[in-house]
Computed example of a mutant assay.
Amino acid sequence: MRCTVIGGAGFVGRRLADTLRRAGHEVWVPARGDRALFSRDLGHVFYCAGLTADYAARPYDTVAAHVTLLADVLRANRYEHLVYLSSTRLYDSSQLPEGDEAAALSLQPANPRALYDFSKGLGENLCLTVADGRTAVARLSCVFDWEAGSPGFLSEWLVRAASERAFRLDSDAGYVRDYIHLDDVVLALETISTRRAGGIFNVASGENVSNGQLAEVFRNAGWDINLSRSSPVQRAAVCSTSALRALGVTPRDVQSMVATYLETIRPWN
C-alpha cells in the first residue's frame, strides 16, 4: 500500500509511519511546505498535522494546519483514501452523557477555546462533504505512551515512574479523561484506511477514568503519588466506540495497561 503521513514527525504520525514501514508499506512523510504533496500520487493519506497544546498561542497556524492545508490536499485530489485526525474534545461542550459520532456538536464562537473545536469541525466537514466518500474522520481521545518525550498528562506520569518512586502532581483527583494507548491508535488508523471506511470514528477506549483512579493504580504497584486537589469526580461524556469495534478494533483498558507496565519497571522486583 502506498501511504502518505502528513504530520509524520509528530507523536502519532511518527509511530504510525514506523509501523506502516515495518508492515511493508511504501511510506512518504512530506516535509513541511513540500509542494510535491499536490502533484504526486499520495495513495492512502493519514492527515496527522495539527496543534494541540499550543493552539491558543498560535491561532493562525492552527487554522492552517487543521483546515487550509487539508483543503489544498482535498482540492488536488491525488489520493485513494484519507483519514483525518480530529479529537473527542469536540464533545467537551456538548453536556451530553455520550459522545456519539452522529450527535450534533455545541460550539461557542466567543469562547477562546472554541478555535480548536471550530477548526477541527471545519476540517471534518470538508472531509465528509467534498471528498466523494473517500475519507474518514478519526476523533482521538487522550493518547498516551511511556516512551521518553511522549506528550500528555498520563504519559508524564509513566515516564517519571521509570526514574522516580514518589512524586506530587498539580492536578485534581476528580478530573476524568478517556485514555487510549498510542499503539491502539495506530492499529485503528491503519484498519480504517485499509478498509477504506467512511464517516466518523471515535478512536477511544470508551471508558472515562479519573486521576484518582490512576493514582490508585500507581499506589497499588508501590509508587507514592500525591495529587494537589481532590474534587468530586467530574461528569463528562463517555465516548461511543461501537463504530470502531465494528471494524474489529478493541482498545485495551488503560488501568490494566498501566498496572502491567508498572510491574515491568519496578526496580525493587
Rank of each mutant, 00 (worst) to 15 (best):
N111F: 00
P112S: 03
R113F: 08
R113S: 10
L115S: 13
Y116W: 05
F118K: 01
G121W: 15
L122Y: 15
E124T: 11
N125H: 15
C127Y: 01
T129V: 02
A131P: 01
G133E: 08
T135C: 15
T135A: 13
V137L: 03
A138D: 09
R139T: 08
L140I: 03
L140W: 05
F144S: 07
F144P: 07
F144L: 10
D145Q: 09
D145S: 15
S150V: 03
F153K: 00
L154D: 07
E156A: 13
W157P: 02
R160D: 04
A161V: 01
R165N: 11
A166S: 15
F167E: 13
R168L: 12
R168C: 10
S171T: 12
S171D: 10
D172Q: 00
G174S: 07
V176D: 08
R177P: 04
D178V: 14
L182K: 07
L182F: 03
D183E: 15
V185H: 10
V185T: 09
V186H: 07
L187Y: 00
L187D: 07
A188V: 06
S193L: 06
T194F: 13
R195L: 12
R196K: 14
G199S: 06
N202D: 04
A204W: 10
G206C: 10
E207I: 14
N208Q: 11
G212S: 08
A215Y: 14
A215E: 14
V217R: 05
F218I: 13
F218S: 13
F218V: 13
R219Q: 13
N220K: 12
